[in-house]
Lab assay of single mutants.
Amino acid sequence: TTLHFDLDGKKLQYTGVSEEIARLVEELKRRGVDLKEIVRILEELLK
Rank of each mutant, 00 (worst) to 15 (best):
K36G: 11
D34C: 06
L24P: 01
V17S: 01
V39A: 03
R23I: 14
E44A: 10
V33I: 14
F5P: 00
E19Y: 10
T15V: 13
D34H: 08
H4T: 15
Q13G: 04
A22M: 09
V33M: 14
E43Q: 06
L12I: 13
A22L: 09
E19S: 08
L46H: 05
E26T: 11
V17A: 03
L3C: 02
I21T: 14
V33W: 09
L12V: 15
T1H: 15
D8C: 04
E44I: 10
R23A: 15
V33S: 05
D6T: 06
K36N: 13
E44Y: 09
L28W: 09
E43F: 02
K29V: 15
I38P: 00
T2N: 08
E43L: 05
V33Q: 10
S18T: 11
L7H: 05
V33K: 08
E20P: 11
E20A: 12
T15M: 10
D6E: 12
L45W: 08
I21G: 06
V17R: 00
D8H: 04
I38Y: 00
G9I: 02
G32M: 07
L3D: 02
E20F: 04
K10C: 05
E43G: 04
R40Q: 13
F5M: 04
E44D: 13
G16A: 08
D34F: 06
D34P: 09
R30Y: 15
L12F: 11
T1G: 10
E26M: 10
L46K: 03
K11L: 08
I41W: 07
V17N: 01
L7C: 03
I38H: 00
Y14I: 05
D6K: 02
K11H: 13
I41Q: 15
E20G: 08
T15W: 07
L46N: 04
K11R: 08
L46R: 03
L42K: 00
R23Y: 13
F5I: 08
E44V: 09
Y14K: 00
E27T: 10
L45G: 05
K10D: 12
E26R: 06
Q13L: 13
I38W: 00
L46I: 10
L28R: 02
R30N: 13
L24A: 14
K11F: 09
K29L: 12
L46E: 03
T2F: 04
F5Y: 03
E27G: 08
D34N: 09
R40W: 09
V25M: 07
A22I: 12
I38C: 03
R31S: 13
D34S: 11
E20R: 08
E37S: 09
R40N: 12
E43T: 06
G32P: 05
D8Q: 04
D8W: 02
E27Y: 05
L42A: 03
L42T: 05
V17W: 01
T15R: 06
S18L: 03
E37R: 06
E19M: 13
V39D: 00
D34G: 08
G16K: 06
E44R: 06
G32H: 11
R23N: 14
R40T: 14
E43M: 04
L46G: 03
T15I: 10
R31T: 11
G16H: 14
E44F: 07
V33G: 04
G32S: 06
A22T: 10
D8E: 10
L3I: 12
E27I: 06
L35T: 15
H4M: 09
L42C: 04
A22K: 07
S18V: 05
R30M: 14
K36F: 14
E27W: 05
E26K: 07
I41V: 12
L28M: 14
S18I: 04
R23D: 13
T1N: 11
G16R: 04
T15L: 09
R31W: 07
T1K: 11
L7Q: 04
R31F: 10
D6Y: 10
G32N: 12
E43Y: 03
E26G: 09
L7V: 13
L24S: 12
V39M: 05
E27M: 06
Q13T: 14
D6H: 07
K10H: 13
E37W: 04
D8G: 07
L28P: 00
T15S: 13
S18A: 07
L7Y: 09
D8Y: 03
K29F: 14
Y14E: 00
G16N: 14
R30Q: 15
K47V: 13
R31V: 14
K10M: 14
K11Y: 10
D34Y: 07
R23G: 15
E20T: 10
Q13I: 12
T2S: 08
L46T: 05
H4A: 08
F5E: 01
V39Q: 03
E20W: 05
K29D: 12
E43V: 05
E26N: 08
I21P: 02
K47R: 11
R40C: 03
K10R: 08
L7D: 05
I21V: 15
R30W: 13
I38K: 00
H4N: 13
L28N: 03
L42I: 07
R31Y: 07
L24I: 14
E20N: 05
K11E: 13
L35Y: 06
D8N: 06
R40I: 08
R31C: 05
Y14A: 01
Y14Q: 00
F5G: 01
R31A: 11
V39N: 02
R23S: 15
E20K: 10
E26V: 08
R31K: 15
L42D: 00
D6Q: 05
E44C: 12
G16D: 09
T2L: 05
V25G: 01
L24Q: 15
L24M: 13
G32K: 03
S18F: 02
G32C: 08
L3N: 01
R23W: 10
L24K: 15
L3G: 02
V39Y: 02
H4K: 06
K29W: 11
R30K: 13
Y14D: 00
R30S: 13
L42M: 07
V39C: 03
K29E: 13
F5A: 01
G16I: 04
L46P: 02
Q13V: 15
V17M: 04
L7E: 04
V17K: 01
L7K: 01
L28C: 02
I21Y: 09
L45V: 12
Q13D: 09
D34Q: 11
H4I: 14
E37Y: 06
E19I: 13
K29P: 02
D6N: 06
S18R: 05
R40G: 14
A22N: 08
V39L: 10
G9W: 02
D34T: 09
K47L: 12
T2H: 07
A22V: 15
V39G: 01
V33P: 02
R31P: 02
D8L: 03
E37K: 06
K36H: 14
G9A: 02
R23V: 12
R40M: 14
T1M: 15
L3Q: 02
R40Y: 14
G16Y: 07
G32R: 00
Q13Y: 10
E20M: 05
L28E: 05
S18E: 05
T2V: 09
I38D: 00
I41N: 07
K36R: 14
V17Y: 01
L12W: 06
S18N: 13
L46D: 03
R23M: 13
E27N: 09
T1E: 12
G9N: 05
F5L: 06
S18G: 07
L42F: 04
E27S: 08
L7N: 04
E43A: 05
V25F: 04
I21N: 11
I38T: 04
F5R: 00
L12K: 04
G32F: 07
V17C: 02
V25Y: 05
E27C: 05
E37A: 08
I41T: 12
R31L: 14
L12S: 05
I38R: 02
L42V: 10
E19G: 12
K11P: 12
F5T: 01
T2R: 02
K11V: 13
L7P: 00
K10S: 12
V25E: 00
A22F: 11
E20L: 04
V33D: 08
H4V: 14
I21K: 03
T2K: 05
T15A: 11
Y14W: 06
G32D: 12
S18W: 02
T15P: 10
I38S: 01
K36M: 12
G9S: 04
L45D: 04
K29S: 13
R30I: 13
K47S: 11
T1W: 09
L35S: 10
L45P: 01
T15F: 14
T15E: 15
K10G: 08
R23K: 15
L35P: 12
L45R: 07
A22D: 04
V25W: 01
I21F: 07
K10F: 10
E19F: 09
R31N: 15
D8K: 01
T1R: 07
D6R: 01
E37D: 12
R40F: 14
G9F: 03
K10P: 03
H4W: 14
L42W: 00
L12A: 04
L45H: 10
T2G: 04
I21L: 06
F5W: 02
E20V: 06
L35H: 11
G16F: 07
T15G: 07
I41Y: 09
I41L: 10
E26S: 08
L46W: 04
S18H: 06
F5K: 00
L12Q: 05
R30T: 14
K11C: 06
S18K: 07
L3T: 01
L3M: 07
I21S: 05
S18Q: 06
K10A: 11
K47D: 07
V33F: 07
H4F: 11
H4C: 03
H4S: 12
K10T: 15
I38G: 00
E26D: 13
K10E: 13
I21A: 09
L24E: 15
G9P: 01
K36V: 12
V17P: 01
K11Q: 15
R23C: 12
V17G: 01
L12C: 06
T2Q: 07
V17Q: 02
E27P: 00
R40P: 05
E43H: 05
L28V: 03
V33C: 04
L35V: 14
D34K: 06
E44P: 03
V25S: 03
Y14M: 03
D8P: 02
